[in-house]
């Protein structure tokens, strides 16, 4: 793989919630213009990682750099400026429930630009067209299916033409058709808008289909990174079990237990 320019750099990041260490000394870099996937089992803190990158959470130690800027050293104003270059697709869509589809997509444009209403109208329709929901512009968020909400949220996420976009578990709980649609959208948007996409997910098939670069996180550590060809070559260990969905392996099928003979004694 040729060496791509780095957009986001995470160095020795440590973060804990209460007693629990979620990330323990993680170092990784996310290349510009590619789709990078961060994979790991449920509860491994993938969403937390996105929030750390976007400066919504502060790490215990370690640094995050975006385009060379030290995210957690920035003032509140500077962080908000930086976030204008980011789009984020939340798991639930996180649409504003009191606005309809059109107004949701228009929202960042109206808040951050002084464009006349006709231009906003045209821009919003273009963004909705890109996600295939121009026909749904008058619907309220409560009238949308989960997949449609995510697509509207995606249209909103790209409304200000960000340089990078973060996807938080985009495929969870979606039917195969919606998954297919989302895979296509993530791919097309990344290529046509020249975005840098960061995807956290545990849906192996979809990720393998679109990701240029994959990082696997488990128990707070980065345990593997590389292109999918590299990762798929592993024939043992955690990565092999995870990518192939095997029930037993380094993560045992059985919860830690006493020997059978011991347990049966008291039956």
């Amino acid at each position: 793989m040729e060496q791509a320019e780095t957009l986001i750099e995470i160095k020795n990041l440590t973060f804990s919630r209460g007693e629990r260490k979620i990330f323990d000394d993680i170092t990784l870099s996310i290349p510009k213009g590619k789709v990078t996937a961060i994979m790991g089992p449920s509860g491994s803190g993938k969403t937390t990682l996105l929030k750390l990158i976007a400066g919504q959470l502060k790490p215990d130690s370690g640094d995050v750099f975006i385009e060379g800027l030290h995210v957690h050293g920035l003032s509140r104003k500077k962080i908000y400026q930086l976030r204008r270059k980011m789009g984020m697709l939340f798991q639930s869509g996180a649409l504003l429930t009191d606005l309809n589809v059109f107004d949701n997509v228009a929202f960042p444009l109206r808040e951050h630009t002084k464009l006349p209403e006709e231009i906003i109208y045209a821009l919003v329709l273009m963004k909705l067209q890109a996600v295939g929901l121009r026909g749904a512009k008058t619907l309220m968020p409560s009238e949308l299916s989960g997949g449609m909400s995510r697509r509207v949220a995606l249209a909103r996420g790209i409304a200000l033409d960000p340089e990078m976009i973060f996807y938080d578990e985009p495929f969870v709980g979606q039917d195969p058709i919606t998954k297919g649609v989302l895979v296509k959208l993530i791919q097309t948007l990344n290529d046509s808008l020249g975005l840098t996409s960061v995807l956290v997910s545990h849906d192996v098939d979809e990720v393998l289909e679109i990701a240029d670069y994959i990082c696997v996180i488990s128990e707070g550590k980065l345990i593997a990174e590389g292109s999918k060809e590299v990762l798929l070559q592993e024939s043992t260990g955690y990565v092999h079990q995870f990518l192939n969905g095997l029930p037993d392996g380094p993560v045992p099928f059985h919860f830690s237990k006493a020997p059978y003979s011991e347990d049966l004694k008291y039956g």
């Binding site: 908000y80 976030r83 789009g87 984020m88 639930s92 996180a94 429930t97 960042p108 949220a153």
Partner: peptide, 18 residues
């Protein structure tokens, strides 16, 4: 709980003001 506040922050809109 529906992440709308987080979404506002990510859209660079200060929830305190908005």
């Amino acid at each position: 709980s529906t992440e709308q506040i987080s979404a506002l922050e990510m859209m660079a809109i200060d929830p305190i003001k908005f």
